[in-house]
Computed example of a mutant assay.
Amino acid sequence: MAAPPDGVPTEYLPFRQQRPGLPGSHGRPGWLKAKIPGGEGYREIKDTMRGLGLHTVCEEARCPNIGECWNNRTATFMILGNVCTRSCGFCAVLTGKPTELDLDEPYRVADAASKMGLKHAVITSVNRDELLDGGASIFAATIREIREQVPGCAVEVLTPDFKGDRDAIQTVVGAAPDTFNHNIETVPRLYPAVRPQAKYRRSLEVLRYAKELNPDGLTKSGFMVGLGETEAEMHQTMRDLRDHDVDILTIGQYLRPTENHLPMSRYYTPKEFASLRKYGVELGFKHVESGPLVRSSYHAHEQTSDARKREATVGS
């Protein structure tokens, strides 16, 4: 087997030649055990999504909070199909050649948001690197359509890096989302294994440019722990995000989707997540959501509300 890039643990590459017996879903500590999805709200949202031919990242990425969120009538729409052009080592979304572009999708997403009575809609997508604008125009159309059909509904987007294309970022920010989110995902040393087609500095620049285009809008990012990062590396990543004017930070435990994905190094304790949150608050983030089951869109409405309150307090 060829030597992996500098700093990347040998067992990460290639995925299908990993050592047997690496941590998986068995034997999880109690703080990582989520309830089996069910309930009236869960079934209603599932029926709405299927009826409109829509996808959610909640399902595609196997989010452990799907039951809680759907019963609270919140969901994260995944636009641009459910096949991604990238092969990130942590992600459960299917990699391959995407289907044709669905130009009617923004209307159906807004219809679903209206039917669900959403106050805060989160829109994300797969990577569509084969498109000239990476799908930015569909993001913008979805934002505008939600504004039209669901007045008063806040809109948060969780975007790809668009290969750093400034025109694409302008297209999305120009549609005025309330929150622009792009996840950094991990520390720079682990990028060759975790995000092989992405670049750490490029992702930071996406966030900086989005804030530059709309200084009054909120920017947001997040990363996973449990992939072999060190405390010093996490702290540096957090400082990098603040240096690029990111307002909201999310930190959660990586959980290996299948045996073909990156192995987990260890479970972090709630106390360790609290320590990371404390450090983030000290750095000046307007909101830090840090916990074992935290994902980008977990309590998204509360994150935005808290960030705005802190912003008002600091500005007064």
Rank of each mutant, 00 (worst) to 15 (best):
M1F: 12
G7T: 07
V8Y: 03
T10E: 14
T10K: 14
L13Y: 01
P14V: 11
F15V: 15
Q17G: 14
R19P: 00
R19W: 05
P20D: 14
P20V: 08
G21K: 11
L22P: 00
H26P: 00
R28A: 14
R43S: 12
R43I: 01
I45D: 00
R50K: 15
L52F: 11
L52V: 09
G53E: 09
E60A: 11
A61E: 14
N65W: 06
I66F: 05
C69I: 04
C69G: 06
W70N: 03
N71S: 08
N72Q: 14
R73H: 14
A75Y: 12
T76L: 03
V83Q: 02
T85Y: 07
A92Y: 06
G96Q: 02
D104V: 06
R108Y: 10
R108L: 08
A110H: 05
A110R: 08
A112N: 06
A113Y: 02
S114K: 15
L118R: 00
L118A: 11
A121G: 09
V122L: 00
S125E: 09
N127Q: 05
D129Y: 08
E130N: 12
L132T: 13
I138Q: 15
F139G: 02
A140Y: 01
A141V: 03
E145V: 02
I146Q: 04
R147H: 14
Q149E: 12
V150W: 00
P151M: 07
C153V: 11
E156W: 03
D161Y: 01
F162Y: 12
K163P: 00
D167L: 08
I169L: 09
V172H: 04
V172P: 07
V173D: 09
A175G: 12
P177G: 06
D178W: 02
T179F: 02
H182N: 14
T186P: 04
L190R: 07
L190P: 11
A193H: 06
V194T: 06
V194K: 09
R195F: 03
R195L: 15
R195H: 07
Y200G: 12
E205P: 10
Y209G: 07
A210T: 09
K211G: 12
K211V: 13
K211H: 15
K211R: 15
L213Y: 13
P215A: 12
G226C: 11
G228E: 11
E229Y: 07
T230P: 05
E233A: 07
T237W: 01
T237H: 01
R242S: 01
R242H: 13
D243L: 09
D243C: 03
D247I: 07
D247G: 07
I248E: 10
I248S: 04
T250A: 12
I251V: 15
Y254T: 01
L255G: 02
L255C: 10
T258C: 11
L262G: 09
Y267Q: 04
P270E: 13
E272D: 06
L276R: 06
G280E: 04
V281R: 09
E282C: 02
L283R: 06
V288T: 03
G291E: 05
V294A: 13
S296C: 10
S297K: 05
A300E: 03
H301V: 00
H301M: 11
Q303V: 04
R308W: 15
R310N: 15
V314Y: 10
